[in-house]
């Protein structure tokens, strides 16, 4: 059947999609382009320069913010992934769980609540119990909203998997812990990895909650960038943004690569 007569095709779809992708990537391209601007004013081009990258790397406050973000993200990702993995194993595999639906809704609660409400909730909670450590506050709050993002890919992986291997392992007198460690975990590893990656990115990216809890030297990278933007746009911001774009795209590519390999390993 030639394309012209394929009844599924509609005229103008191709150009529309092309324009869409242009619109999707143009802003990112503009940010990267102006990061090489020598001028102090972002949108007044006066020559190529890498000096804003040098400025970014010599900016101690920026490096501190990066460190804070990384520490919080690593703690939150680890906790959220473990909590989500345990919850998913029970909800998908255990028998005789009562209130399964409502339990799952509770785990996914942060997804149906606007983040600003969550931010207010943890702010009031921490002020009531008198928790003052900035890092701890961020780690707890981030764990909460990262958990559903870690949960969903793990759940999807578990649901699409037969229990044959686990049953075989149990038949061969492996303890349940051994079965989990040697059979279940390797099989669901791509899902666990995808969940952890998602949680990490969500934590690194968070602005609303981190800004609300911002105190005591625990300023995360997005909150720091927000402060810079409010002072005015400079090419240094573009340089910082470009670095973030490169790192994010690198992480995304790595995640997709590992996931696709994991997928083909178990498919084949």
């Amino acid at each position: 059947m030639s394309h012209r007569h394929d009844v599924r095709r509609y005229r103008g779809l191709g150009p529309f999609a092309a324009l869409f992708f242009l619109w999707l990537y143009l802003p990112i391209a503009v940010v990267i382009f102006y990061s090489f601007n020598e001028n102090r004013l972002v949108s007044v081009w006066s020559g190529f320069s890498l000096k804003w990258y040098a400025a970014a790397f010599n900016n101690d406050a920026l490096m501190n913010a990066v460190r804070t973000s990384l520490i919080v993200a690593v703690i939150a990702t680890t906790c959220a992934t473990i909590i989500a993995l345990m919850a998913a194993l029970v909800l998908i595999r255990a028998e005789g769980v009562r209130f399964r639906r409502i339990s799952e809704t509770i785990v996914n609660l942060p997804l149906v609540l606007p983040e600003i409400v969550l931010a207010v909730a943890v702010l009031i909670l921490f002020s009531q119990i008198g928790l003052a450590n900035g890092f701890l506050k961020l780690a707890i709050a981030h764990t909460t909203f990262c958990t559903p993002f870690a949960f969903l890919p793990i759940r999807a992986r578990l649901q699409g998997m037969e229990t044959d291997f686990e049953d075989a392992s149990a038949d061969l007198y492996a303890s349940s812990w051994t079965t989990f460690r040697r059979v279940t975990l390797p099989l669901i590893a791509p899902g666990v990895f995808a969940g952890a990656m998602l949680a990490f990115v969500i934590s690194m990216d968070d602005f609303i909650t981190s800004n609300m809890l911002n105190s005591g030297g625990a300023t995360t990278l997005p909150v720091y960038i927000f402060g810079l933007i409010r002072q005015g746009t400079t090419p240094e911001l573009n340089a910082i943004s470009t670095l973030i774009i490169l790192v994010s795209l690198g992480v995304a590519a790595l995640a997709l690569f590992i996931q696709s390999r994991g997928g083909s390993m178990t498919d084949g």
Binding site: L24, Y25, L26, P27, I28, V30, V31, Y34, V42, S43, V201, M204, D205, F207, L221, P222, I225, F226, I229, T233, L237, N238, S241, I244, I245, S248, L249, V251, A252
Partner: peptide, 17 residues
């Protein structure tokens, strides 16, 4: 892919544009 890029960076991009 753009969704993996930090939200604040994407909003900043529109500020420049």
């Amino acid at each position: 892919l753009p969704f993996w890029v930090s939200m604040i960076v994407r909003v900043y991009a529109w500020l420049i544009i």
